[in-house]
Structures are given as C-alpha cells and as structure tokens.
Design a protein around this nucleic acid. Structure first.
Lengths: 198, 198
DNA sequence: TAGTAGCAACCGACCGGTCGGTCGGTTTTG
DNA sequence: CAAAACCGACCGACCGGTCGGTTGCTACTA
C-alpha cells in the first residue's frame, strides 16, 4: 500500500537525521561533509540526496525536530502541573534531561550551530526558540507572584540565566563523570530558587 | 633596530587577530576563508601567510589571547579584593564585561568554536579554561565558608552554573537592547547569591 | 502463480567552485 | 642594500550538488 511506502520513507529520513545529528555533534556541521553522512549510513552521496535536497534541509529538519522534542518532553509535559513552583522545578529537570539525552543529539546541534542556516530558515528556528523563552519567562513570573517574591530579578533576565546555565551543560558534561543527571538537576534548581551560597 | 621591527611585526599580528576575531564571530570560523581575512585587511592571501603559518595558528593565538584577557581583566583584577563575597560579585561583573566587550571578540570565538582546533592545540586551551573554572570554584568555596552556607550546591556545580549563564549571554544579547550591562550583572549576581524568586 | 509494469531507492562518475596553503618574484622600508 | 612585507598566480584536495542509469520490491494482471 502507499501508506507502507510513506512510512518507510519517513523512517529513512529519521535515521538519516539521527546519524547526521551524531556526526554534526561530534565534528561540527561545517566539518562534516555529505559524504561523511552518506558513508556512515552505508549509502552513496547520490543515494543520500534522494532523501534530502540539501545539507541545509538536513540541518533545518534536525533543528525543527529538536524543537518538537523540547515542546513534547518539556513544555507539554509540565503544562498539567498546577503548582507553579513544582511546574518550574519539573521543567528544569526535564530540560536538563533532554540536553543530556544520548538519543536526542539534535538539541545540542541546535544549540551550537547558529550560523550555517540560511537567514530565512534561521528565522523560523529562532521564532520557535523565542516562543520557548517566553514560556519560561511567563512561568517565572507566575512563581514570583505565587511566592510574593521581592526579587529585583526580572523574569526575562531570570529566563535567560536559567536557560543559559542549562544550555551550557553540553559544553562540559561528560556522561561518565561524577555529576549525575538527577543530582545536577537538583542543584541547578536550588541555585535558581535560592542561590548557590545561601 | 631589531626591537622596532619586532614591535611592528607584533602589531601586525595583533591587527590580524582582531580582524579575524571579528570575522570569525560574525560568520563562524569554518565559513570564513583566509581570503576573507586577507581582504578585510586589504592584504593578499600570500601577504597574510607571511604573518601566520596556518588558519589553525590564527585561531589558536586568538583563543590564547582571549584567555590572556580573561586572566588580566577578570582573575588578576579581583585577586586584590579581600572580602570573598565582594570578590565574587566583582568577578561576575568583570566576566560579563569581557563577554560583552565590543573590542574583545576573541572571547566569544573561543566560547563557540571548539571543534576546529587540532586536538593537541585544543588541549592547551582546555587546560587554561579548566584553570579558570577551578579559580571560580575555589572562590565559591570561600564565599560559602564565609557565609556559613548550608547550601547543598557544590562549588563545582555552582561554578558550572555561573559560568554557563554568563558564557551563554553572547547567544542572545544585543547591545542596543533594553537590558544594559550594569543591570544584567546586578541581576545575575542576585540570582547566584539569592535565587531569582526569593 | 508466473510474469511484468512501475517506482522508490540507490549508485558512481562527474561538475563547477572554493578551500587552505605554496612559491617565486617584486615592492617597501629602516 | 638587506631584510621584511607583500603580491598574485597557482596547486591538489575536497566541497555541495547533479544526473543518467541500475537495482530490487510491490502491486497488479492474465
């Protein structure tokens, strides 16, 4: 049936995206050639171009997929939590989980590779990123209100600081190291809620 | 005199480094060709190669210079402050100042371009980065001790969180925007010392 | 059920262009 | 006049991308 064919095609694209994500993360986008991607998939370059029209398209799809994952696994999954504080704590945990996930390397690629994308495509990704920042910002506003916070930290600066410390993790975190994901999430939440030296 | 000649040469190298830093920051390292760098200096590629042996060497010198700046303008400049808390607050302010400095674009290049450098050179840069992390870590330890802090945040996680939120700034900060450097530094310090929703 | 039409998947040779880097010779300068 | 600074033509390698042709599976038919 046509349906079966479509599914196969989608699977191929997904597998290509996952492999490309791995290579892009390991070597960088520019340093990874389409030949590299094809070879890693045991494909010729021509075969690879049967599935994607350009290197751009792979990166763009990759980043969109990364935003889909963030939307599902972070945003949507905390929407049901009533208490704002608990919602923010869970968001921190989930966001860290996504950044550290071995499976979803698309996220770190999206975090790192800003320049290579054509301006029109980059704008679309940036719009989705901004949407996420605003979500976090609104959540921080809620938490401050619920706590009758007297902090002079604006939700905007707070959101950037929080996302900064989380999104930077990929720069230094090594899975085998002493700092485990759960512990890291707990400490980062504590820093954001009460500071690091209180 | 030899000295004069040497000085001239050094000036040329510095100017090349500054121009290269600007281009690398604007377009990315891989996307910037040696021709681009040469042209921006009104030089031919051959002329450029009279001053540097390779593109690698430029990037390596750039990053080393970035670490020199950090060492001078952040580390050395806070060493004289006796009170640990004030020392850390000043470090935050100075570090943000360096990241946002228009003149020192080397820093954001160093923060962003990790992959392109050959492993042997990259290790040297990473060693200097680690040194800085340890400095911050030790300072956080001191502040916690001085405050008799009961925080369960380890100095190591605290250092990574702090450096993360600061080093991420270049990803979103636009000089013309509403958030000014002084204000940003104050808010980030507050977050780190007391949290964002206290 | 054997045969076949059709099509997605794939190959590999190839293209124009650009890259980092080289080199022999010329200009500038102290 | 020596040496540093610089030029511009050039090199081999590799880049992203193309294309005509082949393979192999699947759906349909006689």
């Amino acid at each position: 049936m046509g349906t079966v064919t479509r599914e196969t095609t989608l699977d191929s694209r997904q597998e290509i995206l996952r492999t490309a994500a791995r290579l892009f993360q390991e070597q960088g986008y520019d340093a990874t050639s389409m030949n590299d991607v094809a070879a890693a998939l045991k494909l010729s370059k021509g075969g690879l171009y049967h599935h994607f029209q350009s290197k751009d398209e792979i990166l763009f799809d990759l980043m969109n997929h990364a935003m889909d994952i963030t939307q599902e696994r972070v945003v949507n999954s905390v929407r049901g939590i009533a208490d704002p504080e608990e919602r923010l704590r869970t968001l921190i945990r989930r966001h860290i989980g996504v950044v550290l996930s071995e499976r979803d390397r698309e996220i770190t690629v999206m975090l790192h590779e800003n320049h290579p994308l054509r301006p029109s495509l980059r704008k679309q990704i940036n719009a989705r990123k901004k949407e996420y920042v605003h979500f976090v910002e609104a959540l921080i506003t809620e938490v401050q209100r619920a706590r009758s916070s007297k902090s002079s930290v604006t939700p905007r600066a707070g959101a950037f600081a929080l996302l900064g410390m989380i999104n930077w993790i990929y720069q230094w975190y090594r899975p085998g190291g002493p700092l485990q994901e759960e512990d890291l999430a707990r400490q980062y939440a504590e820093i954001f809620f009460a500071g690091a030296v209180q």
